[in-house]
């Protein structure tokens, strides 16, 4: 039987009051300076830079951020925010001001029926498509990071594969592994069937062509995967990239998407970063991220210094 006195109850009330106050304070802090809140347009000088939940993209975003900061422009980092489907609405509504994107894949979202395949055509159409959304794409970089179909060296040699077209020579059943969005994208299994007449089964691996995809290839669980051309694991694991002779993939150069909040001065700085980045640079940057396990900020800083941009 519980004994009741007045004193313990008062301290109970005190405790509950403390909890209530703490709860209000926390909620208030959360609302005030909450970098997660995704609503509305942050006006003012600060440029909100976003990045995909993809380490390579984050390094590029970090390079933009540091180059801008070096010119005393205030930036806010809102990195690692999922795949295109998750963050695109926020670029379109202006809550993110600057985002490293890729010309081909972005154009395919904004203009799904596009026929453009070559770099300059894709870029040209992308400029118009962005304009229609009230956005600007800055200069495209020479750096490319493009989806590509890869197979293991062993598999390629077994069937003499050099191009995607050669896959029709494969007599065994093939399973294709990639992020689940690939299943419905025009260059996924449907594209393989329509463009090349190749039938594949599909299995999702949500690591964006990362280590698990490579492991699945080597284990023989899958025969075909989409891995970015910028990914150092292609070279490291001796994978073979199949040439896309019929234009399944659009040219995909790194390109910054910008809102009105990005001033001409800021745009100029970002353009310089883009111009300095070669395709080989990007592979090297990615390699440092995966092999040396360095944070994006460090990798971006070293590269900017090497290029004399800091």
């Amino acid at each position: 039987m519980t004994r009741m006195t007045r004193t313990p109850l008062r301290s109970t009330q005190l405790g509950l009051a403390l909890v209530a106050v703490a709860s209000l304070t926390l909620t208030a802090c959360g609302g005030e300076s909450d970098p997660l809140s995704a609503g509305g347009d942050d006006s003012g000088e600060t440029i909100v830079i976003g990045s995909q939940d993809y380490y390579s993209n984050e390094i590029i975003a970090e390079a933009y951020a540091q180059a801008l900061e070096a010119a005393d422009i205030e930036v806010e980092r809102d990195f690692k925010i999922g795949q295109r489907e998750a963050y695109l609405p926020e670029i379109e509504n202006g809550s993110i001001d600057l985002f490293p994107e890729y010309t081909g894949p972005l154009l395919q979202i904004w203009k799904p029926d596009t026929q453009a395949r070559l770099a300059d055509d894709v870029y040209g159409e992308l400029v118009d498509a962005a304009d229609a959304k009230g956005l600007t794409v800055l200069d495209q970089s020479p750096a490319t990071d493009q989806d590509s179909y890869v197979v293991t060296r062993e598999f390629a040699e077994k069937y003499g594969l050099e191009t995607i077209d050669d896959l029709t020579k494969v007599t065994e059943k093939m399973t294709f592994g990639a992020n689940s969005e690939a299943e419905s994208r025009p260059n996924g299994p449907k594209g393989l069937k329509d463009t090349y007449g190749v039938d594949v089964a599909f299995t999702p691996i949500e690591d964006g062509g990362g280590p698990l995809t490579v492991k699945a290839l080597k284990d023989g669980d899958i025969q075909l995967a989409i891995i970015y051309t910028g990914d150092p694991s292609i070279k490291k694991n001796d994978l073979v990239t199949l040439e896309d002779t019929k234009g399944l993939f659009l040219a995909s150069h790194v390109v910054p998407v910008a809102s009105d909040d990005v001033s001409d001065k800021a745009a100029g700085i970002v353009n310089k970063v883009s111009a300095a980045m070669s395709p080989e640079d990007l592979v090297d940057l990615d390699a440092r991220s995966v092999d040396e396990q360095l944070p994006a900020a460090t990798i971006a800083k070293d590269w900017l210094e090497k290029e004399g941009l800091l």
């Binding site: 997660l36 690692k80 925010i81 999922g82 690591d207 990362g210």
Partner: peptide, 19 residues
Amino acid sequence: ALVGIPSLGNLLTDGFQRD
């Protein structure tokens, strides 16, 4: 982290991608 809301979950997805 799967829908882009940052937390310690990002360490899981990022570590997964970069092995």
